[in-house]
Design a protein around this nucleic acid. Structure first.
Lengths: 357, 357
DNA sequence: TCCCTGCGGGAAAGGGCTTTCTCTGCGGTA
DNA sequence: TACCGCAGAGAAAGCCCTTTCCCGCAGGGA
């Protein structure tokens, strides 16, 4: 690899001058020398060593991002928002996937700190895990103590800047919608119970049902991975235990798609026999058939705001922005089937006979 | 930020000893000193400066990856394969999204070179653009000249290691399938024509049709962005121009999903009235309704192989691995409608009357 | 007793760049 | 003519680590 001194030597100037030309320093350099340096750069295919630059320069510019998985549409959308603002401000992003592994999350905080990022953004659900939360907060505090900025997206446990989707209100919206359609036997396909996102959404849902004089017993909840297969599998378990279910709330859209698959496999028509409500409104939600009724979260915006927060050097006080959830009515949620309404609570056998799986 | 000397001073040892303890050097250090160093590290929350480390160490370990867009399922799958192998070998990945912008691609090659990556992987279609191709190859050659390794996925233009999905054979498979089902009026929803992937897939398709004594006139091809909306829009244009179409080949699954959306909006039943074949077999393909018939590419495997190639220091000769495409029959491709078969070439009005849009 | 060996530790030389400080030489003013 | 100031270039001091080289010391063999 050609170095700066190679370039300088070839151009017959000092490394200092070469550096000034290459970086467009404010210090003036005569055109003659400038030409020679530029020519040398081209001839040697010189590219500055980024590590040496970062080491020599004082100011840090990259921003670190920790998400569960960028290829998950939920995070892909958030990342899009992060990127947009970062690019506008000429910042480079370093994105790390924790794959929902708390230890990996901790490691990545260190790694990014080691890479001297100017700020750190943690996106994705927090964990119900005291020990982990304490460790994470210690690490973040240490980072902040050295001038690093931190913002979280959708996490309660951190004391600083945060962008919070209103998961609870979203759960409430889903519950109210289904109650309004007459459903009483509602099952829930939930993500891992260790995630705060799961419990928040669940809490809102439960509140809506309670307000309507209904309830949400644990036997109507199944916890599984927050993805398509988790949703499919949880739905199957739910249906096996409770064939009289008329509606299913999936705590994210990936799970809802899994639920739809299981329902289809069992020959249960959506929404005629079983209604489904998802959560997040990822792009694919409108393209499944029937199109998914879901709770929309402004994902791109969440990312954009978090990045703005973290890049806005002022405002030392912790700022918390709560972003509203919104119900998107499409085609998977319909009124409770007449047969069930008429014979409420009785013979679920008839319906079960339809299963093809 | 605490530095290594801070740690050393606090532990009452030299920086050399501190470094040895922290990095688990082979050189022995007494337990006593080791303890003191570790304690100092903990107290100061010391994290080594990654840039300084990278600068001081000679060997480079990270691998750079340039894709069009990680959040696109096509690249998400490939990246999964890349990650798997990289993680196994303890390599860090730096992933950059070019968003199909050739200039950005060039920039990223430089950026990654500057970050001293040990190898570079370019995934995603090449461009029919002489000037760009030459520039890119120059940059890659310069990188390789300094010991860097390069592999491409799905690109012809590079002379070194490559993993090539058999796009042409895949196109052929799609064409043969549709011909076998009796279709004659086949439209194509294609990606940007500047992409080699588009033209390769198209070439295979055309070959299949030609072999069956049919043809693929340009008027039955619409070029658009390689995503859902591009597919929806291209399908609409195709249908407007050619209402008698009985089948549509989308050159990737995202476009196929867009095609499905347009078809649904126009009230055209799939596959009864119009058949659809996609390409890639991304995970969502099985979850749309009807489930998508498509051409599968071993995406994860493609990523894994490319990474293996690039990390396998031996074998200087350029290696090219061609990975086969495979037809996956699901529910969107069916026999040509009887009415059309009977009245081939005549009154398309009847069908057109069904449009609801 | 002397010398050699080997172990544990420190000094110091990079690694490639930025930036401050210093120096030279020129034009302009008194 | 003497001096000041400034433009433009270079010297050199870091930035924070790793690693080689070297040194002192203790133990073992002759």
């Amino acid at each position: 690899m050609a170095t700066l001194s190679d370039v300088a030597r070839r151009a017959g100037v000092s490394p200092a001058t070469a550096s000034r030309v290459i970086n467009g320093s404010s210090k003036p350099v005569t055109d003659e020398l400038r030409e020679r340096v530029l020519a040398a750069v081209a001839e040697l295919q010189y590219v500055p060593n980024a590590h040496a630059q970062l080491l020599a320069r004082s100011h840090r510019s990259a921003v670190g991002v920790i998400v569960h998985d960028v290829s998950d549409p939920y995070f892909a959308e958030i990342t899009r928002g992060l990127q947009r603002v970062a690019t506008d401000q000429g910042r480079l992003l370093m994105i790390c996937n924790s794959y929902r592994d708390p230890d990996r999350e901790l490691e990545y905080v260190e790694l990014l700190r080691g890479h001297q990022v100017a700020a750190l953004i943690l996106a994705g659900s927090g964990y119900h895990d005291e020990a982990f939360t304490r460790q994470l907060n210690e690490k973040l505090a240490a980072y902040e103590a050295t001038g690093g900025r931190v913002a979280v997206i959708g996490r309660h446990e951190h004391s600083g800047d945060a962008v919070m989707p209103d998961n609870r209100a979203g759960g409430y919206l889903a519950g109210r919608e289904l109650c309004g359609l007459g459903h009483r036997a509602i099952g829930v396909v939930a993500g891992p119970r260790i995630l705060t996102t799961t419990t928040d959404r669940l809490a809102g849902l439960r509140q809506a049902l309670t307000e309507q004089g209904r309830e949400l017993p644990e036997r109507r909840i199944r916890y599984a991975e927050f993805d398509r297969d988790g949703g499919a599998e949880a739905t199957a378990r739910l249906l096996d235990a409770d064939p009289e279910l008329t509606a299913i709330v999936a705590l994210n859209d990936s799970m809802a798609i899994g639920a739809l698959a299981t329902l289809r496999a069992r020959g249960l028509a959506v929404p005629q026999q079983t209604s489904v409500v998802g959560f997040d409104d990822m792009p694919i939600a409108r393209d499944v058939t029937p199109a998914l009724t879901t709770v929309r979260l402004p994902l791109v915006d969440m990312g954009a705001r978090a990045m703005s927060l973290v890049l806005d050097a002022g405002a030392p006080a912790p700022r918390i922005e709560v972003l509203p959830a919104e119900l998107v009515r499409r085609d998977t949620a319909g009124p409770v089937p007449p047969s069930v309404r008429a014979t409420a609570g009785s013979t679920p056998r008839a319906r079960r006979g339809e299963a093809t799986m």
